[in-house]
Nucleic acid binder design. Structure first.
Ligand SMILES: [Mn+2]
Ligand SMILES: [Mn+2]
Ligand SMILES: [Zn+2]
Ligand SMILES: [Zn+2]
Lengths: 167, 167
DNA sequence: ACGTTTTTGCAACACCGTTGCAACTACGGC
DNA sequence: GCCGTAGTTGCAACGGTGTTGCAAAAACGT
């Protein structure tokens, strides 16, 4: 059996084993891919990439594995999308993501000031906060310099126009 | 012609007119519903409620109207859901939502400290932040007291189990 | 190697939101 | 009020996404 080539794949295999799972060739291929990818991908994209790399795996299996990994907290889902990315910041500390709108790379960050602000909100609203979603989008330092950055997918769909001249 | 019964419906009709739209019976019914509702509803739920109230409208029209209202900035979408809620805080000031996990009511809030924290993140990560998603979930003050609060829908689906004994 | 348990592929399916098109309706102008 | 134009609606068909049942295949402890 091959050794996991990246740190994420290793952690994931351990976690899967611990929870009674098994390590199959396809699962390993998926873990390798997830761990090596710097930009979040959805099940479909993951599947395409796996096929391109010569792995034989069904899309359903990708879905099932992604679900399992999400449930184990090994992956995060990008807000408002089906794309996932490996959890980088190891432990339970509250952290959030910032995604580059140009190159698509995601980075996790942690902010003490943010946590303080959130507890201020807690006080101000009287809510007992159970969870929160926070994700930023913007241009990463690299992409701010070079504008030679591969464009990523456009913003979310929908946007029906009023006043029918909007063909 | 009827006068809009709530403040949201009024604002929305004006905005629609301004953008070249027309006010139909069905559209008005939808606006009334949206403006009177305190908890976010998705297109399907809106449609059901409209039928229950005796309005004759197709689900597709609800979708189209909701899209249009979102595009005009009159509605907000609840993060990770198709439910929408009227924009309460009138102007372009940055504001966010907090949703009660018990009764489902949504409230908008504004936090100076939060904005400061976000610009700190901007500095720390080197990203030029273009947009952000922030939404909180927790128990509202009312629901913290009475536990006689109608339960809302459970958390998001998915969650595939590892180690097949999870039937 | 063997038996048990998990994983996988396949096909069918449920669900959600979108689109083309023809009929209908609002509304400004007369 | 009637008319013409432009926006809106319903219907049916469609595409995409993620899920499920089931039987075959693979993993792994012994
Ligand atoms: Mn993480
Ligand atoms: Mn608002
Ligand atoms: Zn970038
Ligand atoms: Zn509540």
């Amino acid at each position: 059996m091959e050794e996991p080539s990246n740190e994420f794949a290793l952690r994931a295999e351990q976690a899967l084993r611990r929870s009674g799972g098994r390590i199959t060739r396809r699962r390993r291929a998926l873990l390798e891919l997830l761990g090596s990818q710097r930009t979040p991908l959805g099940p479909r994209q993951l599947h395409r990439e796996l096929l391109r790399r010569g792995a034989r795996i069904d899309l359903v299996s990708v879905y099932r594995n992604v679900s399992a990994l999400l449930a184990l907290g090994l992956l995060h889902r990008v807000v408002g999308s089906s794309a996932v990315r490996p959890c980088r910041e190891a432990r339970a500390r509250c952290h959030h993501a910032i995604v580059c709108s140009a190159c698509g790379r995601a980075r996790e960050f942690h902010s003490r000031a943010l946590e303080r602000a959130l507890s201020e909100v807690r006080r101000a609203t009287g809510f007992r906060v159970e969870e929160h979603v926070l994700e930023l989008r913007g241009r990463c330092p690299r992409c701010r310099r070079s504008r030679l950055c591969r464009r990523r997918q456009s913003r979310s769909g929908g946007a029906r126009s009023i006043g029918g001249s909007g063909r």
